[in-house]
Amino acid sequence: MNNVGHTILIIGIAAVCTIFLRAVPFLIFGGKRAVPEGIRYLGNYLPAAIMAVLAIYCLRNIQLFRGNHGVPELIATGLVILLHSWKKNILLTVFLSTMCYMIMIQFIFT
């Protein structure tokens, strides 16, 4: 039973810490007062920087100098860029590039 209690505690801590992190900006700027100009400005310009960091975050474990040298990741990411610049259809882009990546790592670069 002690084990169940410990499990619940760990899950609770993970849940509370996660929601706290997500809530920080709202705790600071979410009140009734007007949102500071600097935050408005960031709201406009920060998302593009965040998305760039997130994209690199997803690709962070590529092994450029070992294994398959990150070829499947680089090809699939290149496909995303080309396909999305051309067709601008996010479903098509996500679906095709993921299929392509799965085929590459399961059958070609095994």
Binding site: A48, A52, I90, T98
Partner: peptide, 21 residues
């Protein structure tokens, strides 16, 4: 075999980057 399906998240972020660009 679902190996590699996690690339859909990478694709999502990169595609949104392209849109923002």
């Amino acid at each position: 075999d679902t190996r590699g399906i996690d690339f859909s998240m990478t694709a999502l972020f990169v595609a949104i980057m392209v849109e923002q660009w």
